[in-house]
Design a protein around this nucleic acid. Structure first.
Length: 325
DNA sequence: AACGCGACCTGCGAGC
DNA sequence: TGCTCGCAGGTCGCGT
């Protein structure tokens, strides 16, 4: 469920509560939630206990926390050098369709789908537990190594510009909110592909952070059709779609994200309210507001594309009959 | 290279 | 009341 704005809301909330705190214990209640941690539960827990969370970083829909682990020190207890203290591993989180990261006090009863409980060092006025809750278990946590990015770091807002990126996130492209996002890189990748526009928007290797909701919203805002062949896409069209994606995600971020139900919530359990601002996604049968404002009869239509729903306005995002875009 | 499809899961609402 | 079906914000891997 969560796309970039929702993950960024979580990242900001998390950063506020966990940065600088040490993990005291880890409780894996359902090992399926750490199945991407190949070495198993014991290794997962062993890597986290006594580690200190340095930061919370995001690229696209991936979120991770670089860790300061207890490096072995000299017999005299001498401090390690600065180089030694560079983070080498991170706790990675992907929320999948229904994952949540919640800050809770220990007295709060376990959530129905609580999967992993991470206890943190006590800190005045701060919740003691970070909980991973996930109904559908498509998301998960795992420990991953950090690798050099070879450039300005993962990007994104607010985080320390670490020159390293979580290995499991290194295959995805920068997202449109990343200050180092390159339109030229995006456009080159798009033109190297021969497929429909929505496919490349959803391809995290081409541009990251966009999911089914914001793909449809960006297409609606830029008046482009999801099946528009990449080979007919002009540079100006590509600029429009990227700008639209960036703008709709910034708007959603300002609204605290899109929540249709209790599945998407921030670290304090609160829903975002961008759902009411959606123009296409989920509005099948309802009038297209842009058309209505212009006195046109557009009604949002739902179609299957890539085995999932796509919402478009057939009037202002037309698919030409003669194949000429 | 592109694309379709199944797998991974639980739960909800609609319709019978 | 309960059953089945289709649907849901994401990704991964396999076959063609």
């Amino acid at each position: 469920m969560p796309e970039l704005p929702e993950v960024e809301v979580v990242r900001r909330g998390l950063a506020r509560w966990v940065r600088g705190r040490t993990i005291t214990s880890v409780d894996v209640l359902d090992p399926r939630s750490i199945r991407r941690h190949a070495l198993g539960t014991e290794d997962f827990v062993g890597n986290l206990e006594h580690a200190t969370v340095l930061d919370v970083v995001r690229r696209g829909k991936f979120l991770w926390m670089p860790l300061q682990t207890d490096e072995p020190r000299g017999a005299d207890g001498a401090r390690s050098t600065d180089a030694d203290r560079l983070p080498r591993v991170a706790l990675m989180a992907h929320l999948g369709m229904s994952g949540q990261l919640l800050m809770q006090d220990p007295g709060v009863p376990d959530e129905k789908h609580l999967k992993v409980r991470i206890s943190l060092s006590q800190s005045e006025g701060m919740p003691e537990q970070l909980r991973f809750v996930d109904q559908r278990i498509f998301g998960g946590l795992f420990v991953t190594s950090l690798v050099p990015t070879g450039d300005g770091g993962p990007g994104g807002e607010g985080e320390t510009p670490l020159p390293e990126i979580a290995e499991e996130a290194s295959h995805i492209a920068r997202d449109p909110l990343d200050p180092h996002f390159s339109f030229d890189d995006f456009y080159r990748k798009v033109k190297a592909r021969k497929t429909g526009l929505k496919r490349v928007l959803l391809d995290q290797g081409v541009i990251s952070g966009i999911g089914n909701i914001y793909a449809d919203e960006a297409l609606w805002r830029s008046k482009l059709h999801y099946a528009r062949p990449t080979e007919t896409l002009r540079r100006a069209d590509a600029v429009r779609i990227v700008d639209a994606a960036r703008e709709v995600m910034l708007d959603a971020l300002a609204a605290g994200g899109t929540s249709f139900d209790s599945l998407y919530v921030n670290v304090n359990g609160a829903s975002g309210y961008f759902a009411r601002s959606l123009e296409a996604y989920g509005r099948a049968g309802e009038p297209c507001r842009r058309c209505a404002a212009a006195g046109l009869p557009g009604v949002i239509k739902r179609e299957q594309f890539m085995n999932r729903s796509s919402y478009t306005c057939p009037v202002c995002q037309p698919k030409p009959r003669n194949g000429r875009w």
